[in-house]
């Protein structure tokens, strides 16, 4: 996301930090639980899904940022960044899926799911935005 710090951006950063702390805590806690005393049945489902919740929270923070940002130009850049992330993620996952379909690469994702590639795309989109603002400032 851009270096511009509007009130909406500051709220986004605070929310993001909270969800990231929760995510790190849960990923270690749930890993420990499954190694020490693996839960079974419905409890396994409930515990296994816990680390996904803060990731969903991050998606919510991004949605709130887009809704709360009052600077329309910066909001446009954020929307472009999110669309770039979506296109990047879908492209990677589509190519990967076909490689798996024809057994060129093994099944499974090694822990690198769609969210991972979406966030990587968001990072690239952020670099694109930063370059856009920099090139305009230098003209």
């Amino acid at each position: 996301m851009p270096s511009y710090k509007s009130p909406a951006m500051q709220r986004y950063l605070r929310r993001l930090a909270v969800f990231m702390v929760i995510y790190v805590a849960l990923i270690f806690a749930v890993g420990t639980v499954f190694r020490a005393a693996p839960p079974t049945g419905i409890l396994a489902w409930g515990v296994a899904v816990l680390p996904a919740l803060p990731i969903l929270g991050v998606f919510w923070t991004i949605a709130r940022l887009l809704a709360e940002e009052t600077d329309e130009y910066m909001r446009q850049l954020l929307v472009r960044q999110s669309l770039f992330a979506t296109a990047f993620c879908l492209s990677i996952m589509t190519v990967w899926e076909f490689l798996q379909n024809y057994e060129v690469v093994p099944l499974g994702n090694g822990g690198f799911g769609a969210a991972f590639f979406w966030f990587v795309g968001l990072g690239f989109g952020g670099v694109w935005n930063a370059l856009t603002n920099r090139s305009e400032a230098e003209e």
Binding site: P2, Y4, D71, E72, M74, N133, A137
Partner: peptide, 22 residues
């Protein structure tokens, strides 16, 4: 205007057309 400097710069350079309210 209550916007970022980047917004003013983008509008000034003609890279971004502001909304009617702005």
């Amino acid at each position: 205007l209550g916007v970022s400097r980047q917004s003013v710069n983008a509008i000034e350079k003609g890279r971004y057309d502001p909304s009617l309210p702005l």
